[in-house]
Amino acid sequence: MRRRTTGIAALVAVAALALAGCSSSGGGGGTGDGGDDAPFKVIAFTSGNQTPIGAWWVKAVQAKADENGWDLTMIQGDFDFQKMNPQVESAIGQGADAIFDGFTDYASIGSIITAAKDADIPIFAMDSGTEATDAFVVNITTNQQGLVDSTLGALDESLGGLEGKNIMVIGHDPHPGIRLRASLAEKDLKAAGAIIAGGEIQKVKSPATGRTEALAIVADYLTAHPDGLDAVWVGWDDAALGASKAIDEAGSDAKVTGSDATSEAIAAIEAGGSFLATINQPWPEVLDTVTDDIIAFQKDGTMPAENFVAVDTTLVDKANAADITPSDKL
């Protein structure tokens, strides 16, 4: 009996610790120092708070809220929609003036969109879908076609043309942005006469193990085809770093491009190995624009002119790598 009690006590202790952990990371705002009698209420949420950019966004939005006197409720979903969506919906139930979605695809938040529509609260979004949708009053994202054009351009230049070259494309389907740009890259590479290594887009299963998965895929491909690889186009930097490591270890001279401009990728580009280029997406500027849209709505109910905007991105290569602020150091 006593033994059982201690067992339960230990369980409770662990649970309490876990809960404490959750609340300290999940708490966030809600205390906008306002100044007005009824502060403007904003619910912000993201599922990607565990990625560097997501973590930056959480802090940056809190700073914007402080700056503009919003009463902010910040909900962090940890990639767990089953947990996040009900939290957001109950916040909606308590009333709000605007909702701000960061990096969470509209396909995953259908119930939030319905709840917001019913409560007649507009959703402002950044990088929350790759095409126009009624769900958002605005969704500003980056121009995926432009991103693909510039990475392929870098490869074209480095390889001296894409025609007849063996190029591997590595993607990750659950992420809509990566899925879209990987398929655009595949299509454009084929159109340029390149051969897609392995015959199709190589798929990484989990973002957590993206680097080791990409490493194994490229290493194994290179053993099977020692001279059969000219370049690897990768949809995001973490996996691109794995691909790059496999190429360096195999002594191949194939090139790699990524996307996100993480500091690790930028360092690799500067080091001059196989990592050729990555893409810097101007998230601080996008955040500024969306914030301006929200402020305009706060003032007199002005809605953004267009509900979908795709902004251009910057290619990061050896020439400009030193000047770029890495996405994880924002």
């Binding site: 708070n49 500091s263 690790e264």
Partner: peptide
Amino acid sequence: LATMTSVIGLAYLVTQGTTLFN
């Protein structure tokens, strides 16, 4: 299962959610 949950949390705290390199 419980320690796994806590340990993953600790790992996030240690890395601050990012990838440590260099």
